[in-house]
Design a protein around this nucleic acid. Structure first.
Lengths: 337, 337
DNA sequence: CTGAAAGCGCTAACAA
DNA sequence: TTGTTAGCGCTTTCAG
């Protein structure tokens, strides 16, 4: 940072004005190809780098976007982050990490960073809006990914959680399971509700009753999967199959089943949701719904870029990316009695 | 971003000068407590937020730090990121994600972001320096975490990889294993070399020969663990235990062993390195070296903060954080023959 | 304690 | 095609 060359320095050496240098460095055709080249050479020689604060102040941009999640420590976000980062970088944007930990104050703080010029736009994955009222959010350059914020008027990139969950449960039913329980995410978060809805629809379509105790609430964390699993197998009539709302809890559930001496999938089948990259190395390899995470990241960031470049944004219809049910070793027909 | 209030607006309404507003908002004692309060109230009322670009330009700071890793998609970095983010945020800094994918050009680009005012400092976890020569790097506000860059003169936060690896292998030896193989990371990366060195030391101390084919090179990825494992068990005299240089490859190795019909730990014991958060739910629960990742992140960021606030920095002695060998279900005495 | 004035480094009208 | 000029919004001397 000490005495770095500025445009003026280049201008003096090149015998031109600062404006010309600025234009040349921006490859403006208004500058002779020859002087343009000369200035580029000079800039390289001096190891010149434009001061971003000055540029940002002048252009009223920051060339940064904010990626806001509930928990940066959650491996689920990794591929999304990767997709967002790649797409952002290709377009010359940097990615600022935002971590809310479900704290409304922090959620608000990240929105404020949009107003104070810290970032030009936001990819929001918390499923929540700060309590300032949707009116103030309306036109902001925000794309909601993964989760869904109803009536926000914001563009969404997501998967069809209901249909995906339904397909997962239908797979269990097709295998012959009747007593299928569900470990859900936190209620009433929309994502949890959708996946539960898919479960209910599949069960209903198959004419299967859902016993009251067959829906237990988790919190998407590993330990929660264990606990919920325990509760389910304390029941007088335990299930023969589990549809778990995410892979992490599914890991916990399988772990717990093993601890209880129940075989997976021999005695109990388990289906997860997300297809974390470890699920295939898990034992038994986990049957689970794959979300195209990297693509969600790329698509969301692409959409944001379009918004930032003034392109048309229809916050109307969400962009829905396809899921795939990856059938692996954790599901099998129920043990014939 | 549209017509946001600026200092001047507040100044006019308060009937004072812009300078006074600036001072008041900075809680300078040069301003009467009463006007200070009035201006704060006004700022809140107008929903004022200082323009960061203008402030950054003026103060020559960005209040951002760059966190540079090889691969943002690697779950290993999660807890570190979390630690860095938390510590940074407490101090008012934002975290910019940098992802090099081992591309020297991109590594250089991130260093340039330091020079162009994009960020004030960097936590570097790639184990590499761009090829500009250490001379230009010397005084930069950069902290190296996790990996080690020899002769860089930069402050380091790391663990003792040699000692940790040694302890892991000693555990296997203590169980009675003699034929212990090692799946290493990419050679010659320092981290891989250190862990291999620990393996060699433990073996040597126990008077155990290392057959030529017992050291195979992986790349820290899951598939690589599978492949290396396959190579080892194609040997005429396969090992009874594996020390794998990271958990991810260990998952792959265990997966492959299972595929080959070899029991873990009955037939083969496996020790990993890192203690990813899933290793305890893995089957069998993985014996592995735990690195205090969140603490590495917090410590590195704390060190960087000290540097940024002009505090003394001794790039001499690295800060070494302790590791713990977590003994779980993937290791057992060798099957008695 | 407060105000006037300068300027951080850059870009974009407007003129030439 | 190039130069001149005027700020972007803020902080910080320097005077008062």
């Amino acid at each position: 940072m000490r005495d770095r060359p500025k445009i003026k320095d280049i201008a003096e050496r090149a015998g031109v004005s600062a404006a010309t240098v600025s234009r040349a460095l921006a490859d403006s055709t208004l500058v002779t190809a020859e002087t343009r080249q000369r200035i580029h050479d000079l800039a390289r020689e001096l190891n010149y780098r434009p001061n971003v604060s000055a540029r940002n102040l002048r252009t009223r941009k920051s060339m940064s976007v904010l990626l806001v999640v509930r928990d940066v420590g959650n491996p689920f976000y990794l591929d999304i982050l990767k997709g967002v980062e790649a797409t952002a970088r290709e377009a010359g944007y940097s990615v600022l990490m935002g971590n809310t930990e479900n704290d409304p104050l922090r959620e608000l703080e990240y929105f404020n960073m949009l107003r104070d010029g810290h970032a030009d736009g936001m990819v929001l994955m918390t499923g929540k809006l700060p309590p300032v009222g949707a009116s103030r959010i309306g036109g902001l350059p925000v794309v909601v990914a993964l989760e869904m914020i109803e009536d926000s008027g914001l563009p969404h990139v997501q998967v069809d959680n209901v249909a995906a969950a339904r397909e997962a449960v239908e797979h269990l039913i097709a295998l012959g399971h009747r007593r299928i329980a569900h470990i859900s995410g936190p209620i009433p978060e929309p994502m949890s509700l959708y996946r539960r809805e898919g479960y209910r629809l599949a069960m209903g379509d198959a004419g299967l009753e859902i016993p009251a105790d067959y829906e237990v609430r988790g919190n998407f964390l590993l330990e929660s999967g264990q606990e919920c699993c325990q509760a389910l197998f304390d029941l007088p009539e335990p299930p023969t199959a589990l549809f778990v709302a995410n892979d992490e809890m599914a890991y916990g559930a399988v772990h717990e089943l093993r601890r209880m001496g129940r075989e997976v999938p021999g005695e109990v089948s388990v289906v997860g949701f997300d297809d974390l990259y470890l699920s295939k190395a898990f034992y038994p390899p986990l049957t689970t719904v794959r979300q195209p995470r990297a693509e969600i990241g790329r698509t969301a960031m692409g959409l944001l870029l379009r918004i930032l470049s003034g392109g048309g944004v229809d916050g109307g219809e969400p962009i829905v990316l396809p899921t795939v049910l990856n059938i692996r070793g954790s599901t099998a027909p129920p043990r014939s009695r």
